[in-house]
């Protein structure tokens, strides 16, 4: 046996448990979901004849096309807003804050993640309520004369998402920024580049891996999230996860729910395919 063959065998042996785990608990269930998506619910029973009916329903019924469009809109707004908030924070943390303060600040930044996701959503509901902190502050300061509707809206869902994901994006951007050698920016300045030009032509391009990874993670986590839109959105619009739950809880229509889940997977897969080349925190 050559050393290459030995190395290959060792590689398989070491990755075997992980592959087995993934096959048993991800690929097999996912395969089952895909199979079920081609079945049909007839009355209270499952018709296992393969059909595209569920997919036809999804693309012909306004409820589902609207749910898909709304999901994409909410998630894209979330990704952009999270990046706009996270980038300056990560930049200041990486380049303006003394090294000894960076770690404590990072811990403070991730502190909200130590609380339950559901508790955080309900907390936001109280903050955004008509008699919540924001409305009370604006009324006290005379900015508004009567409470404005913030809770139970798409805006509330986006605010909740941005709060949850800004810190995640900050971490990935911070990791990218700290990998950029100081000499690169110094060289740009020595060659006469202004601070803005240095940022736009050196720092920003080199930090893009962190931006892309953070944006992708935000997209994946937000588009499949059921809790935040349910609690903060007030059930006023159906996003894709809500549409899936509706099929499971109300109709018991698992084939249609499976087809919607496959659609969700395809959307995430398509986004991954677009950004796959850049999905690494290492600079290239």
């Amino acid at each position: 046996m050559t050393s290459h063959e030995k190395s290959t065998r060792k590689g398989w042996a070491l990755s075997g448990p992980a592959l087995l785990w993934t096959s048993l608990f991800f690929l097999a269930p996912m395969g089952f979901v895909v199979a079920v998506s081609f079945w049909r619910r007839v009355g209270g029973t499952l018709d296992r004849t393969l059909t595209l009916d569920n997919y036809r329903t999804i693309f012909e019924d306004d409820v589902f096309t609207t749910a898909l469009r709304s999901s994409l809109e909410v998630v894209l707004i979330t990704v952009v807003a999270s990046l706009l908030v996270a980038y300056p924070f990560a930049y200041i943390l990486a380049y303006r804050v003394p090294a000894r303060w960076q770690r404590p600040l990072l811990i403070l930044a991730v502190l909200p993640f130590w609380t339950s996701y559901v508790v955080r959503s309900y907390s936001w509901l109280l903050v955004l309520a008509k008699n919540g902190v924001i409305n009370q502050a604006m009324m006290t300061s005379g900015l508004i004369s009567s409470p404005i509707t913030l809770a139970n809206t798409r805006l509330a869902t986006v605010i909740g998402f941005v709060h949850f994901f800004t810190m995640l994006v900050s971490l990935t951007i911070y990791a990218s920024l700290t990998q950029i050698p100081e000499s690169y920016r110094k060289a740009a300045r020595d060659l006469g580049a202004s601070p803005v030009a240095t940022f736009l032509r050196v720092t920003l391009p080199l930090s893009m891996p962190g931006v892309v990874v953070g944006a992708f993670l935000t997209f994946v986590l937000a588009i499949g999230d059921f809790i935040t839109p349910q609690i903060l959105g007030g059930g006023n619009e159906l996003l894709l996860p809500q549409a899936i739950m509706l099929q499971v809880q109300r109709r018991g229509d698992f084939p249609l729910a499976a087809a919607l889940s496959v659609l969700l997977l395809v959307v995430v897969g398509a986004v991954y395919a677009v950004f796959a080349r850049r999905l690494s925190l290492e600079r290239r």
Binding site: T149, A151, N152, Q230, I231, G234, G235, N236
Partner: peptide, 10 residues
């Protein structure tokens, strides 16, 4: 006229 639609607790 509806502000929200939810379960009993909501």
């Amino acid at each position: 006229h509806v502000s929200l639609i939810g379960d009993v607790v909501t």
